[in-house]
């Protein structure tokens, strides 16, 4: 009798399991797939999404970077190199903001270190390239300030 009970219990448990999967097939709304390359236009990112580092520029192609190198020091991987230059007033300004995407771990520490909001985490996430050189980026659009 006990074994018969156990058998009935087993069968009902198996049927319950079948019910769970059947529920998925009869409710197409439960499908969670998002078709990626097609929905690229409609992709939404949370505001804090951490993609590759970008340097926002205003309409005159100016940026906030003062070449203070705080981000360079904050970076755990040595992904950032600030190359400075002198402007007409012989003041030290940003020459090139070299950002090596290949060694970046997107840890956000450089953005936290920056006192001027000169850099931020962008929403770019398709970071593949064919050569390693493609991943050495220069973030500022023009030299100096």
């Amino acid at each position: 009798m006990i074994s018969l009970n156990r058998f009935a219990g087993s069968v009902s448990a198996l049927l319950k399991g079948l019910g769970v999967t059947l529920n998925y097939i009869v409710h197409p709304k439960r499908v969670v797939t998002r078709e990626y390359p097609e929905n690229r236009e409609t992709l939404t990112f949370p505001e804090r999404f951490r993609g590759q580092v970008v340097m926002p520029h205003d309409e005159n192609n100016d940026h906030n970077c003062t070449a203070c190198t705080l981000c360079e020091k904050a970076c755990p991987n040595g992904s950032i190199s600030i190359l400075t230059t002198k402007n007409i007033a012989s003041k030290r300004v940003l020459g090139q903001f070299v950002y090596r995407l290949s060694s970046c771990t997107l840890c956000n520490l450089c953005i936290e270190a920056c006192p001027f909001d000169a850099i931020r985490m962008g929403h770019g996430f398709e970071m593949a390239g064919y050569t390693r050189e493609e991943l050495d980026l220069i973030l500022n659009k023009k030299e100096g300030r």
């Binding site: 949370p46 505001e47 804090r48 999404f49 951490r50 771990t105 997107l106 520490l109 985490m121």
Partner: peptide, 11 residues
């Protein structure tokens, strides 16, 4: 992802 921008390596 909404909280800290990352899905796996949070920091």
């Amino acid at each position: 992802e909404e909280l800290c921008g990352a899905r796996l390596t949070m920091n």
